[in-house]
Design a protein around this nucleic acid. Structure first.
Lengths: 160, 160
DNA sequence: GATCTGACTTGCGTTATCCATAGTCAGCCT
DNA sequence: AGGCTGACTATGGATAACGCAAGTCAGATC
């Protein structure tokens, strides 16, 4: 009951996963605090100490992680000025950062199902334009849900 | 351009994310090596040193992480015996572990898009029963794709 | 009984992560 | 000029993660 490795991958020793995108992604998002900061960014957090406090980490950690996240291009540090205030910097999601939404929601859904005990999910998601619930799904281009055992993995044609 | 917090959540100080499922999930999967081991389990890895080697981590790390993952119920350690061999133990995905598939694929898709440079994705996924490509999508029950700015978040009714 | 192999375990050193606390610094306000 | 506030920076110390290398241990094979 696992994915099916096809083509070259069938010989498990013929391919190493060192260029795997999952590993690369984990290099960027490997720590708990990084991901929690991204969560707060999704929830609309922008100011330094708001992000730090709501993520539940110290300002020192937040500063280090925010620097990494901006260097990796998930967040952008941009100056802003409220009337009568000095200029400050806020952290806003870039497209790269926004594209993490499926990851965050998939993780949330998994936690909701398997880690909340009898209480169920603490938060509910809905599509604001139609009102119905939101979920993360693994689907093929034909629209079929794809369970693990129907998933085939092969080496991609390197595009030129 | 973020999610919209509704209801009680609109007051950002009225709710703390300490029970958030994302944080809980990160407690289980917080480390890089845990996730890499899960990836190998999805690819069909079962034996200890195969998992360790293909995840690219030392056996000592693998032993520690596999113990955690089995304690958390993502993997199950079960005895098996090949003919003419002594009994050994293999690690197989539980339902809880298999349910991480959307997380793994979402992470892979994100890495494919943003971290591979010009080479593009190293692996291709397809639905084995119909042959078409596979993707992870955020959709509402009506079938609409839900972008971040159309996502509403509110406190769930605690189910009794 | 000796050997071999897969599955770990142990020991050690390094680096990373994190917390707590305290300090700095810019610039608007009075 | 001095105060205040938000955004950091610095220091110290604990814990965890990880790699490397070596050692153990069970049981099938010779």
């Amino acid at each position: 009951m696992t994915a099916v490795l096809e083509g070259k991958l069938a010989d498990r020793d013929a391919w190493t996963a060192d260029r795997c995108s999952i590993a690369k992604a984990l290099d960027v998002l490997g720590t708990r605090s990084s991901f929690l900061l991204m969560r707060e960014a999704f929830y609309g957090g922008r100011r330094f100490d708001d992000l730090a406090r709501r993520a539940g980490i110290t300002e020192a950690s937040a500063a280090a992680r925010l620097k990494e996240l901006t260097e990796h291009g998930l967040l952008e540090r941009r100056p802003y000025q409220e009337p009568g205030q000095r200029t400050r910097h806020e952290y806003v999601l870039t497209e790269k950062g926004r594209d993490l939404l499926p990851v965050a929601l998939a993780l949330m859904a998994w936690g909701d199902k398997h880690l909340t005990g009898s209480r169920g999910a603490p938060l509910a998601l809905r599509h604001r334009t139609c009102g119905s619930g939101v979920a993360v799904e693994v689907r093929c281009a034909e629209g079929h849900p794809v369970p693990l055992e129907e998933l085939g993995v092969r080496v991609a044609q390197p595009r030129r």
